[in-house]
Structure formats: C-alpha cells, structure tokens
Amino acid sequence: MVNEFPQALSIAGSDSGGGAGMQADLKTMQMRHVFATTVLVAITAQNTLGVQDSMPLPPAMIDAQFASLNDDLQIRACKTGMLADVPTVECVVANLQKYDFGPVIVDPVMIAKGGAPLLADDAIEIVKKRLLPLATLITPNLPEAERLTGMQVESKEEMVTVGHRLQDLGAKNVLVKGGHFDQSGLAQDFVLLDNDESFWMTSPRFDTIRTHGTGDTISACITAELAKGVPLETAIRTGKAYVTATIRDGIEVGHGHGPLNHWAL
C-alpha cells in the first residue's frame, strides 16, 4: 500500500505572502485531498502589494529536488508555475523529460498581479519551443496567451483562434482563461481538447480585488484531480468551480490584491 495515496507535484516559485505560487498550490492540493510535493525553483519577497525582490535557485539544487522525489515517491501529476529565467526553464524541461511524473500542467506564469515580471523575456521562447510540447494542458490567461502566440485577443472568436494556435505550439489541451476579457459581468474560459472537442465555462464576476493566485489555484486543482485519476475534462470543470468559490467566498487579508479563500468549497 506504500505510495498508493494520490500524490502531485508543484514546480514553482515561493510567494512569501502566501497567496500565490507554491503556497497556493499546496493549499489547493491539500483541499483536494491529494498529498502535495514541491520542487522550488525561485524565491520571491512578496505580499499583497507586489513583488519586492526575487531570486532563482541554482539548477543543481533543482535537479537534486527532482531526483529526491523520484527516488521515493509516486507522483501522479505535476504542474509548473513561475520559472523565472532561461536556465530554470531548461533545467525543468530536462527533468520532466528524465522522470515520469504523470500529466504535465503548464501554467505559463509571466507577470505577477501587481505587474512584476516573473519570467524573463528570453525565457518565453524556451517555454514555447521546449516546455509546451511536454504539456498535457496549458492554462494561460489572455495576456499570456497573447504573448505566447503573438496575436491580440479582443473577442470570443479570437479566444478560440488563440486556443488553436497554442495547440499548434505543441500543448495537447488548452484552457484559455478569460478573466481579463469583459463579457457583461461574466468570466468565460475556453477549453480546447486534443480530440478536437471544445467547450466554454462561465462564472459570475465578483466585485473584488482579492484575486491573487487565481491562475495557480485553478491549475493546482486540475493537477490534484488528475493525480486522483479523474478524467481531464472533469478535472478542468472542477478547477473552474473551485476557483470561483475561492473568489466568491473571499477573505480579508493584506492591503492590496488579497489572496483567495482556499477553504471555500
């Protein structure tokens, strides 16, 4: 019975403020009743007001974390978050090719909620060419989808087009999050699957600035569900429902873009 309990992996940076990054991943996976493991790739000095400083970890330390997990645990799904710079992206890609940690969910984190860059410009091309082809699912918001594809998205029809372009870059399945696109009080996300099926997910918009960590949370929830053996479409829909609840049932923490309520059900 050793290693039979569902286990998932977060490959990400640390958010000292606790609202996003690896901390959001851990809280989410715990709430989904999955044992969470981590490969820390960067450290940030961060709170709800913004990112004050950040530092990537040496690739050798990242390698050691991957090897340690592989030697003992049975990771059934993994996700990437903040990847910082070219050496970090290349290191993570090499380890994902070396070890089988199940489905790979890529959350292409580029900019923090307060505007601080979390992925160097020259690393974006490495993400496109080397990481996306490994992705079972990619979960960009609209600015990230635009940056990866070079196209501007201003309509639902263009969300569909950008989804297909992301799939053309190698990602098997695509979730384009529409939180940055105003649709009459609704948040609409587009999902494109590798069997050519697609669907939209819609939720109400809530009048709040306490949305720090939404991207990390939905991708972590999907990862946790996949680690339990849940089908991808069901996992995506569960992720959408969970992140909607964490925004709807918000908590008052910090003076800026506050965190989600990961206790929400």
Rank of each mutant, 00 (worst) to 15 (best):
Q30E: 15
K79M: 11
P204Q: 12
L166M: 08
F5V: 13
L134V: 08
E154A: 03
R237E: 10
G50T: 02
V174A: 08
L232D: 04
R130M: 11
H164A: 11
A24K: 01
H212A: 03
T202F: 07
V230M: 10
R76M: 03
D249A: 03
R32G: 07
P59K: 08
P108V: 04
T238L: 06
M1A: 10
I251D: 13
L131A: 07
M61Y: 11
E146M: 05
P59Y: 09
L49K: 08
T161D: 05
M29F: 02
P87Y: 03
C78D: 15
E225V: 02
C221R: 02
D122T: 08
F206M: 04
V86S: 14
P58I: 02
I247R: 10
G19N: 11
F66R: 02
Q188E: 15
D71L: 09
V86R: 15
K113W: 09
L166T: 09
W263L: 14
I251Q: 15
H212R: 05
A227F: 03
N261W: 00
L40H: 09
P108L: 05
I247F: 07
T38D: 10
I209G: 01
Q74L: 14
L131S: 02
T234S: 14
A77V: 05
K177F: 06
V89D: 01
K228D: 05
T161W: 00
T48N: 00
Q188A: 12
V89P: 00
L40Y: 04
L137Y: 00
G13D: 11
N261L: 03
S203C: 11
L166F: 00
I111Q: 04
E158K: 13
R76E: 00
R210N: 11
N141T: 01
P6L: 08
Q65N: 12
M151G: 01
E90K: 11
A77Q: 07
A171S: 12
I111G: 08
S54F: 09
Y99W: 14
I236F: 14
R130T: 15
V160Y: 11
V191F: 14
A45M: 15
V106E: 01
